[in-house]
Amino acid sequence: MIAAPGPGFALARDEDEGAVARTRIAVRGLAKRFNASGREFVAVDDVSFEVKQGEFVALLGPSGCGKSTILNMVAGLLPRSGGRILIDEDTVETGKVNPRVGYVFQRDTLFPWRTVEQNIGYGLEIAGLPRSERAGRVASAVEKAGLSGFAQSFPRMLSGGMRQRVALMRTLILEPEILLMDEPFGALDTHTKLEMHKTLLEIWERERQTVLFVTHDLGEALTLASRIILLSARPGRLREDFDVAIPRPRDPVAVRETAEFGRLYSHIWHSLGEEFRRTRAD
């Protein structure tokens, strides 16, 4: 399933060490049915995939195909109707939070009554870390987010891009090994989005978290991911699985000029187009 590791490829380190990358997320025969006004409605149907240590996997599919639903079940936010989800060989229990897993929402979920600094430090604060020990880590996270002048600002004073950087840092400061992201940049304009891609790529190329990234934007998936899982239109089923062998480090603008980007783009676009047409035909 994994392409031959080239220079700078995501799994190069693991392979160098001679170990086969460990499976961090395993989804097996996952299903979700909703009860919409008495009638049963299948949102996700028999989805299986795996995400290995250090992989950056994009979950791509047309709007409404069940991407958020899948991610929420992986995070344990939503009970599943069938199938299994394992994180590091442990079955995910609904309502039980796994401290190794971080989650970034599709919607803005910053706490508006907390300053940037207090939002970023939230996880450390409620974990009972004393203020003196928090301060340094929070300050460096604020700087990493490029928000040095805004530590004391409330979220409403920030632009959408700045808010999303705060949300990202609020999650990353807890150093999750597994990162679940639900269209975190979906609400941003193209320029801000590219900047966020740059930030995320820098962080990921340094820290190599295991990432499951939901998006309906093919360009975004190709820019960021090492692998793309394409879902079908409603009900969400697995359609295809692509490796993205674009070398790293990647630049979100330059990456678009590579032959691999172009090739995959038109190839996946074709499949995605069929799914979009099916969505509309419904």
Binding site: P99, R107, T109, F111, I126, R170, T171
Partner: peptide, 14 residues
């Protein structure tokens, strides 16, 4: 209260 804010807090360990 925004349910997603509650979910966010939970996921951050609350």
């Amino acid at each position: 209260v925004d349910r997603d804010q509650i979910a966010a807090a939970r996921l951050l360990g609350a």
